[in-house]
Amino acid sequence: MVDGDTIDLGPPQAQVRYRLVGFDTPETRTPRRKVSADERALGRLAKERLVELLHSGPVDLTEITCSCPPATIGTKRCNAGRKCGILKVNGADVGATLIAEELAVPFVCGETRCPPMPNWPKIIESQFPSRRTE
C-alpha cells in the first residue's frame, strides 16, 4: 500500500504500481509542494480506509489504458511510471466509497490527458472551515 489512491501488487521482486483512477486522495508527501499537517492527516485516514476495504472482501483490479500520450506510457512522464487501474472490493469501486466518505474527490481523466490535480488545501478548508472567532 502506497497511499489512498496508489497500490503495489505482486511479489516484492516484481511489484507493479497502480494509480487507481476516478478519484484522488490527499497527499501525505509529494515532491511537487509542501503538504500541510491537515492534508497529511486526511491522506493517512484515506490510506487506512483503503487498507480496511482491501481486507473486507474479494478484490478485483482491472488494468486500464492511461490517458497519457502513448509514447509516454510506462515512463516517469506518465503517472510517474505507474499503470492505471480500477479497484473493486466486494464488487464496489473503492474510489466511490472513499468519495462518499469524504476521503477523496472525483478525478476523471479524459482520453488524452488528466485535469489539474485537486487543490487539497482549498478542499480541506471548504470541508473543515476554521473555527476561529472573528
Score class of each variant (00 low, 15 high):
1 M>C: 11
2 V>K: 12
2 V>G: 09
4 G>R: 08
5 D>I: 02
6 T>Q: 02
8 D>R: 14
9 L>M: 08
11 P>Y: 02
12 P>E: 01
12 P>M: 06
13 Q>V: 08
13 Q>E: 10
14 A>D: 13
17 R>Q: 09
20 L>K: 00
20 L>P: 02
21 V>S: 01
21 V>H: 00
22 G>E: 03
22 G>Y: 05
23 F>L: 02
23 F>P: 04
24 D>Q: 03
24 D>Y: 00
26 P>D: 07
27 E>P: 04
29 R>S: 14
31 P>I: 01
31 P>F: 00
34 K>D: 13
36 S>L: 00
37 A>Q: 09
37 A>E: 09
39 E>I: 05
41 A>D: 05
43 G>I: 05
43 G>P: 07
44 R>V: 13
44 R>E: 15
46 A>K: 07
46 A>Y: 10
46 A>I: 11
51 V>Q: 12
52 E>D: 15
53 L>I: 08
55 H>L: 15
55 H>C: 15
55 H>R: 15
57 G>A: 01
61 L>V: 04
62 T>R: 13
62 T>C: 05
63 E>N: 08
63 E>Y: 09
63 E>T: 13
64 I>V: 15
65 T>F: 01
65 T>E: 13
66 C>Y: 04
66 C>N: 14
67 S>V: 05
67 S>C: 12
69 P>C: 02
69 P>R: 09
69 P>G: 07
69 P>S: 09
70 P>I: 09
73 I>Q: 11
76 K>R: 12
77 R>Y: 07
78 C>W: 05
78 C>I: 03
79 N>V: 11
80 A>E: 14
82 R>A: 02
83 K>R: 15
84 C>I: 05
85 G>P: 00
87 L>V: 03
87 L>A: 05
88 K>D: 11
88 K>W: 07
89 V>H: 02
89 V>S: 02
90 N>H: 08
91 G>D: 03
92 A>V: 12
93 D>A: 06
95 G>S: 08
95 G>V: 03
96 A>C: 10
96 A>L: 12
96 A>H: 11
99 I>S: 02
102 E>D: 15
102 E>M: 11
103 L>V: 10
103 L>M: 10
103 L>K: 10
104 A>E: 01
105 V>A: 08
106 P>W: 03
107 F>R: 06
110 G>V: 06
111 E>G: 14
113 R>W: 14
114 C>W: 04
115 P>W: 08
115 P>L: 03
116 P>Q: 09
117 M>Q: 14
118 P>K: 04
120 W>E: 04
120 W>Y: 04
121 P>Y: 07
121 P>T: 04
122 K>D: 14
122 K>A: 15
122 K>V: 12
125 E>S: 12
126 S>V: 11
129 P>Y: 03
129 P>H: 01
132 R>D: 14
132 R>N: 09
133 T>S: 11
133 T>E: 10
